[in-house]
């Protein structure tokens, strides 16, 4: 009997370890959340804090879902920040109050769908362009997206003449700033996007193709996957997601300018990496991406809440990212 019991405990322990090892990102997130809860005597668990976190991370979540899929196919995208910036500016320019004399199109009251459409299309075009450069132009993703990053930045400055695109209509701002009961609209949009991405990655042929390409693109090709087409598709999907991110960000801020969303690519890449989307490709889940975003979000939020000096915040964030990637690499090095 005693021997049986001991074996049972051992099994349970093994199971627990396996669970932790499999869900490191979730465990990390929960640990951080509990830690912050203790440090703030429970206030970080109260609804206003949770709500703040959701609002703060929602735009980044869209960027992360986009680049997360790209990284699953073993790509990378550095153009996110400036593409989102350009999209936000384009969307904002069609949503300015018509009586605002400094508007880009003064005196014109555009219908509400136009800024959203223009923004998402702009994002999609940049994604498509990235995809074509990488898939058919055979450019390394790093270089191709570095180029489009600069193009997006230049286009933003030219389009806006480097000015602030402000004074947005309330009807546009409420898209981002409104709430459904206690739940911020932004969080609802993220939830909807998550469902789509989850279905795409888990329950469609296309999703399987993304993993196959990231795991081994030669093998994927041999097994009949059109690697070029799927690559274009994944970058375009990501571009559309950045498009949504930019539209929502403009609505949230009530403006856009050349500084909007700068550096978002690093936040998004870091978040999905912390969330277990391996840089070696072929590995990662939608839930991982969102857990990654929330993990970095809670670190940001916690440090702001605790009043940590902004310079130290950058240090801490940097170290946490390095540590997360370190463990990620070790995990997959062992497997290989």
């Amino acid at each position: 009997m005693a021997a049986n019991n001991a074996a049972g405990t051992l099994e349970a322990r093994k199971g627990f370890r396996a669970f932790i090892s499999k869900n490191t990102n979730l465990v990390t997130f929960i640990t951080l959340a509990v830690g912050l809860g203790l440090l703030t005597s429970g206030r970080s668990f109260e609804w206003p804090s949770v709500r703040n976190l959701m609002i703060a991370e929602s735009v980044r979540a869209f960027a992360a879902l986009g680049v997360g899929m790209i990284i699953i196919t073993r790509g990378i995208d550095l153009s996110i920040g400036y593409v989102v910036c350009l999209v936000a500016s384009v969307a904002a320019s069609f949503a300015q109050t018509p009586d605002y004399t400094a508007a880009l199109y003064p005196g014109i009251d555009f219908p509400l769908w136009l800024p959203l459409m223009a923004g998402v299309v702009t994002g999609g075009i940049f994604g498509l362009f990235n995809g074509v450069l990488i898939a058919y132009g055979k450019l390394p993703a790093f270089i191709a997206t570095l180029g489009t990053m600069s193009i997006a930045r230049g286009a933003q400055l030219i389009y806006t003449r480097a000015a602030v695109v402000g004074s947005l209509k309330d009807s546009y701002k409420v898209i981002s700033q409104g709430s459904l009961g206690p739940i911020p609209n932004l969080a609802i949009y993220v939830a909807i996007a998550c469902v789509f991405i989850w279905i795409l990655l888990r329950h469609t042929k296309r999703g399987t193709n993304f993993y196959a390409i990231g795991g081994n693109s030669m093998a994927a090709r041999v097994s009949g996957i059109n690697v070029e087409r799927e690559t274009v598709v994944v970058y375009t999907y990501a571009g559309l997601l950045y498009g949504i991110a930019g539209c929502l960000l403009a609505g949230r801020l009530g403006l856009a300018n050349a500084l909007t969303a700068n550096g978002m690519e690093l936040d998004a890449i870091a978040a999905v990496t912390v969330g277990g989307i391996s840089q070696t490709g072929g590995v990662g889940t939608m839930s991982g991406m969102i857990i990654g975003v929330l993990t970095l979000g809670i670190i940001n939020y916690g440090m702001t809440y605790l009043g940590v000096d902004s310079y130290y915040q950058l240090l801490v964030k940097g170290f946490i990212i390095i540590v997360a990637v370190w463990f990620d690499m070790k995990k997959y090095a062992r497997r290989a």
């Binding site: 490191t24 465990v27 990390t28 640990t31 951080l32 830690g35 912050l36 440090l39 916690g302 440090m303 605790l306 940590v308 801490v316 170290f319 946490i320 540590v323 997360a324 463990f327």
Partner: peptide, 13 residues
């Protein structure tokens, strides 16, 4: 990873 992050948080406390 947990230990490292816990330490970081402790420092911030």
């Amino acid at each position: 990873k947990l230990v490292v992050i816990a330490l970081v948080l402790a420092v911030l406390a």
